Simulated assay, not measured.
Amino acid sequence: MTRRAFHHEPEEVRQNALIAATLDSIAELGLAGATVREVSYRAGVTPGLIRRYFDNKEKLVAAAYRSFISDLIAMAESGCGDGPAVSRLAGLIRASVTAPVADGRTLSIWAAFIGTVNSDPVMAQAHREGYQSFRDLIEQLVGEVMAERAVPATKPDIRRHAIVLNALLDGLWIEISMGGDDFSRFDVIRIALDSVATLLGIDPAEFRE
């Protein structure tokens, strides 16, 4: 367990530290174990200070979920780099199926959060926002790939591709993060890239490094 030292930090830094302590608690203890007392201990503050920024645990958890999803998307997007759309899409795929996006700790936190989506409207909204943000990123890249290759594609066509591609990455992400033996024997990046190439009608060689 890591206890953070709190000094006279700006409010944004303090809020981020509280969110980080919340995610650490959830990763190790689950949502039930991520109490205000536990989070305050890890953050090195009093429970009263947490309530200064978040009215209750539910709002703290929702803020942590939004931050968690936003960070995952940012890490995946960081793999895009520059260059042709095909290269940027390939970079996004690689980042999405490798650590730190795909690992056991990340999956544990996500699994704890996702169990609340059907019962908590605030968490459901946070989930929709996160899903939409990542799908929009994929949709943009797919559209650019199609345009780059002069392949006729309507907006509904591109959106359908983005939905399927997102579902494909979600499935691979879960399996890889669980650390199953089946995936340890294979080149998961190649599996992901070849699958997406097939979906988009691209020669898999175009995705090769």
Rank of each mutant, 00 (worst) to 15 (best):
D55P: 10
I158L: 02
P121C: 03
I69N: 07
T2C: 10
I163T: 14
T22M: 10
Y65K: 11
D24F: 02
E144R: 06
T46A: 15
L29W: 02
R185Q: 10
K59I: 00
M178Y: 10
R190Q: 12
I138N: 08
A64G: 04
R52Q: 13
V39G: 02
G91N: 09
I109F: 03
R51L: 07
R52A: 11
V142R: 08
L23K: 05
L72K: 14
E28W: 04
R42F: 09
M123P: 00
T154A: 04
E209K: 04
G79P: 06
S133Y: 02
A153L: 05
A197K: 06
I174C: 10
E11N: 12
G201D: 14
V97T: 11
R88Q: 15
E209N: 09
P10R: 06
E206A: 12
L169W: 10
G179H: 08
R88C: 12
N166W: 11
V117W: 05
S78T: 03
A153Q: 06
S40A: 15
R88H: 13
E209S: 03
G171I: 13
A153G: 05
Y53T: 13
L200I: 02
V142Q: 01
D82L: 09
R4C: 01
V145H: 03
S195I: 02
V142E: 01
D187L: 12
K57H: 04
I189N: 15
M123E: 03
K155C: 00
S70I: 00
L168E: 15
I26E: 05
L141C: 05
A147M: 08
S78R: 04
N56H: 03
A205M: 11
T98Q: 10
A150G: 13
Y41I: 09
N118K: 07
M146I: 11
L168S: 13
F186R: 14
G171D: 13
I174S: 14
G91V: 04
D24S: 14
P156L: 14
A32K: 15
L172D: 01
V188H: 03
T106P: 02
V97Y: 04
M178E: 13
A192L: 10
S119Q: 00
A126R: 01
L172K: 08
R190T: 12
F113V: 01
P156C: 15
V142S: 04
A21V: 06
R66W: 00
V101A: 07
S195C: 09
G179M: 08
A63V: 02
V13Y: 01
D55V: 11
S96T: 05
S87F: 06
S184N: 09
Y65G: 08
E129Q: 12
A162I: 05
D136W: 08
S108Y: 10
A99C: 08
A74G: 03
A63I: 01
G30T: 10
A126S: 07
P204C: 07
A205R: 12
V45H: 07
V13I: 04
G201S: 12
A167C: 11
G48M: 06
T98P: 00
Q132K: 11
N56P: 05
T116W: 02
D187C: 14
T46Y: 10
V45I: 15
G143W: 01
G83S: 13
